[in-house]
Design a binder for these strands. Structure first.
Lengths: 360, 360
DNA sequence: CGGCCGTGCTGGATCGTTCCAGCAGGCGGC
DNA sequence: GCCGCCTGCTGGAACGATCCAGCACGGCCG
């Protein structure tokens, strides 16, 4: 059954518009630029110019064409546009393989999506192994590579994909340099955290950090060393996986409590592992916040949701994602030179886990 | 400086191939099907047939063309292909607005990405508001809408986008029916959970669940009612947000402990809120696992990482994502009729939080 | 008044792929 | 021996947007 559209366009081409709407109802073909042009009584070039904002079109004509396009429900065919413009209108997002479980990356991804969307870019999630599968470079205009780890075999291929790449944090491996990067001052944030702990009475702080295969972890370890030298206080460092589980952190923490180290403050770099630190503290009979101060280098659901809540460095992942997408977008638009590096700010969230002794 | 390519193709058209390679080096234009055809000494139609697997091509010719294509580094232009085939090779993924923080959805998303990739589909992450922004339907061949909530204003638009839609869990709102759905038997999983709690000694179980705006929450509430009637034991139900925070869960739990309800087991539907339940238990002086049993309807980092670890229904989000993508892929391929519904299995993960009294 | 320029619009070519009609030639059946 | 069919391949026409050369027209200047 063919229903006549109730919506008609009140222009010179009105009857033809209704005709085309009916046509659509039957074949479900989509409205093309030519349909709009015909309905508006202009050529497709003018229609294109009017809708695209380019070229020379009188204000009256432009308004009329936009009106017609809206009423017909015109939406540009992105494939055709991509073909002609030699760009896909999409960017790819690569996240660390091991850490996809962390809500940190979820927030970052959605920040990036939103920002990309504002510039008309789609964001496609890159599956592990999508590079080897080929066909990648053809499908995206640029890439976001977040927390590139040196032992991630895909990162070099991504950097060499022939499209602009923005990394979140620096890439410590060699090869093709990325076109841009957004970096955090992780050294400064850890130093702020250690200062905070010291101020709250910590004398023997310890750090659980991944091996220095990522810029983040490397910066943390370097900062711990620098702080040690500056303060004349040794920071005990233990290695945990990049996406450590609570169980792994619990074992590492147990080793730090008592024994030769006998830490009175533990900084756990990966936020997902924080509950393990708390569990180890409970097991050792230490009261978190007074007997043992606990903090994390990344804020997340685990740090916010634990009891007591855990002091952490808020890397503001959503804004971080936005910043990465914004930089890539600027690179694609040619608004910024390749090699650009932008800084992203963090904030210290002080919570109950570092309350300190009242009497300190 | 123009370097002569060292790689030449040993065919009749060899010299022309080298020429074109040089050309590429200068202009950095990519290799097209026509380049391959010329180099192989066939027409573009034959080249297309040989590489695409369709049409009638002799085995010898096909092998030769594939060889040439590989040597030239040919990769099909997806925009041109999309334009011609009227399909984009990408699917969209929509997640609940409120719950993007949960690692559950992160895992689900990556499961879907991987499965889509296996069928050559890209997965684009849909930003909140991308529907209203327009340009959506044109860019994807199909949509994955996960845990559609009735009060999500975007869902009706997505269902009406004119492309096949697969929902994860059913959509309780009206409007256009989705083309497919992957569902969990959430009623069965909650009943299994309640049975488990009863077996471990619980006599006054309580449930924290969102309001019935999603199929999941509605099924949980219905199942709690059914179980109450079957067992003759009232299940106290309190409402928490879909993506409840620990603080919200703590308040709700505090109300259940002591007072008229005096629950001895709490089932917390959203996993992210579990730490709040544990905190309330600690505050009330209840020992989790013996004095108070605690469980969650979704397994996740919070349930696994807390101390003690919390019994939960593992919805296997990664496989869930794979199943959704697989169904959509089948729908797009026409391998399955619209309206198809597939079932996804869950598993009960029993952990320390429901150990029960030794003497029970 | 003629040349020139700027404005507003047009038609055609183009991007790289797939699809379709069709053609040459070999071969088997009647 | 002719017809028709099957195999293997070809050329051209889409797909829908953008870009470019160019055209008509009116106004301005010398």
């Amino acid at each position: 059954m063919l229903e006549r559209s109730s919506k008609e366009v009140s222009t010179a081409g009105g009857d033809r518009v209704a005709l085309r709407l009916d046509f659509r109802a039957v074949t479900s073909r989509s409205v093309t630029l030519i349909d709009v042009a015909r309905a508006a009584g202009v050529s497709k070039s003018t229609a294109s110019n009017a809708l695209g904002g380019s070229g020379r079109v009188s204000e009256a004509t432009r308004a009329h064409i936009q009106d017609v396009a809206r009423q017909l429900g015109y939406r540009p065919n992105s494939a055709a546009r991509s073909l002609r413009r030699a760009s896909t209108g999409a960017i790819g997002l690569h996240l660390p393989r091991t850490a996809t479980r962390l809500d940190y990356y979820m927030n970052l991804a959605f920040g990036a999506v939103e920002r990309a969307r504002e510039d008309g870019l789609d964001l496609v999630l890159l599956a592990p192994g999508s590079v080897a599968g080929g066909g990648l470079a053809a499908r995206v205009d640029g890439l976001l590579v977040i927390d590139p780890e040196v032992d991630d075999p895909e990162v070099p291929d991504l950097l060499d994909a022939g499209v602009p790449v923005v990394t979140g944090e620096r890439y410590l491996g060699g090869g093709v340099a990325p076109s841009g990067a957004v970096v955090c001052d992780n050294a400064a944030s850890l130093i702020a955290l250690l200062d905070h702990l010291a101020e709250r009475g910590a004398r023997r702080p310890a750090l659980l950090a991944p091996d220095p295969g990522s810029d983040w972890a490397a910066a943390l370890r370097a900062a711990a060393g620098a702080w040690s030298r500056r303060e004349g206080v040794e920071v005990a460092v233990r290695t945990v996986p990049f996406a450590a589980t609570p169980v792994e952190a619990e074992a590492a923490t147990a080793e730090l409590l008592g024994g030769p180290v006998d830490a009175d403050a533990v900084v756990c770099a990966p936020d997902g592992a924080v509950p393990g630190v708390l569990a180890a503290a409970a097991r050792a009979g230490r009261r978190v916040g007074t007997d043992l101060l606990v903090a994390a280098c990344v804020d997340g659901a685990a740090a916010r949701g634990s009891g007591p809540q855990v002091t952490a460095v808020d890397l503001r992942p959503s804004e971080y994602g936005r910043a990465c997408a914004a930089l890539l977008s600027d690179l694609l638009a040619g608004a910024v030179e390749p090699g650009a590096v932008r800084r992203h700010d963090w904030a210290l969230k002080v919570r109950a886990s570092t309350a300190g002794r009242r009497t300190a």
